[in-house]
Nucleic acid binder design. Structure first.
Lengths: 343, 343
DNA sequence: CAAGAACTTTTACGCGCGTAAAATTTCAAA
DNA sequence: TTTGAAATTTTACGCGCGTAAAAGTTCTTG
């Protein structure tokens, strides 16, 4: 490699013997040039390992090949996993994903959207904070940028939403719990940040009533995204005060359930199904760690891969034909009951 | 706001009555203009919410205000947490952090470094894959970009390394375990991706020998970054075959330990300290989930905040005076013994 | 082999901003 | 008020690439 000489496309044109406009075409789409030309370019590329300046490229594009991915809380492996899936799909589609986490904070979410807008992205995949989001800010953002919401819905905002069918998921696990033992109590945070929580509580109530059973919702205090901590601390309180009318608890999500399992353990209650166990605990989401709790957690799985794939598909169709959208698309994937040992 | 008119700095100069070069100065450092001027600019900014085009800015800077953060595996909450800390510190320092995960894959790590280089970052904070890294690629990268390594060291690569003192950490927990019961067996992956694993094994051996005890290292098969899964599957095997010479096991990291706890639970062994327990399990790292295992996990904490802070400090001093470096800096933070219920 | 299609080259301009130099204005201290 | 330092304005150029238009070349098809 005889390098150190090629500092821009002009120079690369000289050393490769290809004109700059053709090179420009090539870098925007290698298939848009004749195969022989492409081969010559790529041979020269091997020699000089030149790469176009990404800033200069994007300055002259109204829209870039960047895709923003904004998640509410990346330290939650659920979002990390989904982001990983999405990233890979974006790369496969020829885009550059940029991952931003709002760390559970509204100011950060607003900053992230601002910062993403500055990137002039082709599109954005956004899992909003939910209750903690500044709706006006998000609406304005979605008006300016093709945006697909996932995980957490905000009515009428964004061009599409992809998430879980909470009604179906809650329905199926409540039904299972009722069939296999005592009906579940619903354990949740009073002011859950995520709007799924409300849908889940509602679905729980509806399912219980449909089954002719009296629902019991235990809403506990606790702010922020430290769900395990809240589940554990408040779980111990609930257990100590014997607030549950039955021996079965359905937690609003797996992270709360993981905390609740810890609470049960620390309270000396054995969790599992069968006569020798004092408590049954179930969750929702199939969190990556749910396979390794003690006991392993019965839950309803979200299909991470499917959600990621559909979200990206929606965004791609949005990018390809921005005006061809008649109405907002909503996709809800069914959850799958995952029977493990905790319930 | 009378908007829709200001499309570049020129226009903003017109509407604000400030010359473009002064505006340029302001956006590069608001303190570099006279306070009255600054006030006028900021007043105009309220009116027109103009933002400089980031691509045009960076095209003319040899170095940008971007800082790359590359971690090996973001779905591991350990890295997510440390990245969160680092991100915030970078923002406070006036930089734009860009977070990239290699998802445990060498090709992805190489791509990430390539992609970061294209961003012309002021500096990079890199936690390499370790054993899975392509040393030559990383060396070349570090030659071109001011880089601070963290978590996982690669000898003589990068301008600085910030991590945990494995010898101290392992020493302290081995000592504790020996003092409080039977000496620990060391449980690890045979081909751990992270170089800390080797240091930990070595430290374990050294400490045991110093104490006049015979070390026992159990190295299990398992590829990839799915540590809990490996810890659980292989843990069950180890337990079933009674491979451990004592009732105490020190796992090479918390994620393995979390898996091992699951294995013990599923094997019917009660974990904890005291006569009524069959097994003691300890880990290393103080993983975010270690407070919620059953039982809670005794471990040695890494000071996430300190590691993040020092890493960023090192990088900042590197950015400010790139040549003032005589030798590679290495910072090792002591781990703190965290006594919980598992050992 | 001819004709037209498809591609490449040449030429030229523009994007939005950094930045240098010289002229002018503002400010603070004497 | 004067004076010099500091800040601002004016003017002008350059960064690396996208892209348009016209002219030239190569390929395909019959």
């Amino acid at each position: 490699m005889s390098e150190q000489t090629v500092r821009n496309m002009e120079e690369f044109a000289t050393v490769s013997g290809i004109s700059r406009p053709t090179l420009s075409k090539y870098f925007n789409d290698p298939d848009s040039v004749r195969p022989t030309t492409r081969a010559r370019i790529e041979a020269a590329l091997e020699e000089h390992d030149y790469r176009p300046n990404i800033y200069a490229i994007n300055q002259n594009r109204r829209l870039t090949k960047t895709i923003g991915i904004v998640v509410p809380y990346l330290s939650d492996p659920f979002f990390a996993e989904i982001a990983r899936n999405i990233e890979n799909l974006c790369i496969d589609a020829g885009f550059r994903p940029i991952l931003l986490s709002s760390h559970g904070d509204q100011g950060q979410e607003n900053d992230n959207l601002d910062s993403v807008r500055g990137l002039k992205p082709a599109g954005v995949l956004l899992a909003p904070l939910g209750r903690g989001s500044d709706r006006a800010v998000i609406e304005r953002f979605c008006d300016a940028v093709p945006t697909v919401l996932f995980d957490s819905n905000i009515d009428d905002v964004g061009e599409a939403f992809v998430g879980m069918d909470n009604a179906q998921a809650v329905g199926s696990i409540v039904q299972y719990l009722c069939n296999s033992g005592e009906p579940p109590v619903f354990f949740e945070m009073r002011d859950a940040p995520n709007p799924n929580a409300n849908k889940r509580r509602t679905a729980y109530r509806a399912t219980m009533e449909r089954l002719g059973l009296e629902p019991q919702v235990i809403s506990v205090d606790g702010d922020g995204w430290d769900f395990e901590e809240i589940g554990c601390r408040q779980g111990k309180r609930v257990i100590a005060r014997r607030e549950m009318r039955t021996n079965t608890v359905l937690c609003s999500n797996d992270r709360l359930a993981i905390g609740f399992l810890a609470a049960a353990y620390q309270s000396g209650l054995r969790v599992g199904r069968g006569d020798s166990f004092a408590l049954r605990v179930a969750g929702l989401d199939d969190h990556p760690f749910s396979r390794f709790t003690c006991p392993t957690l019965t839950t309803v799985s979200q299909d991470y891969a499917a959600i990621a794939e559909r979200s990206v598909q929606e965004l791609m169709s949005l990018i390809e034909s921005p005006d061809a959208r008649d109405a907002r698309h909503t996709t809800l994937f069914d959850g799958k009951l995952i029977l493990r040992d905790s319930a």
